[in-house]
Amino acid sequence: MLIQLTDQPIDVAAVLQAVQADGAGAVNAFIGTIRNRSTGRRVVRLHYEAYDQMAVHQLRKVAEQAVEKWPMLQEVAVVHRKGTLDIGDVAVVVAVSTPHRAESFAACQYIIDTLKEVVPIWKKEEYEDGTVWVAAHP
């Protein structure tokens, strides 16, 4: 299991390599990237902040929950970026390997969806005329 929070660019190929397993017939990956628009405004760049220790702990818990739900999971890797990111940069990579493809899609989606709900990482969008902490207010 590879769980990482990094302030360096994510090497997607290395994350895929980390879930290589002889028993796997499927590798499924989700790659989250920085988009240039948000709620109609042009985004210049994004700033990610994390509660490092808790974020890594919670990332690991999410990955372990996935293994409980899909015991056929061979390998799981989750790498999340922090710091300042530009448009097109990779913010997060989730990769899983399973014997067959159906479970790989389901497990990968579970991990990214749950990550977005529970892992203490925050992003601040920077526009040409200001900044906003995403989802902070109703």
């Binding site: 913010a91 925050w122 992003k123 902490w133």
Partner: peptide, 12 residues
């Protein structure tokens, strides 16, 4: 205890 306030998270 290690205590922290957690505002709405927005990772991913």
């Amino acid at each position: 205890d290690e205590i922290a306030l957690i505002p709405p998270v927005s990772g991913g």
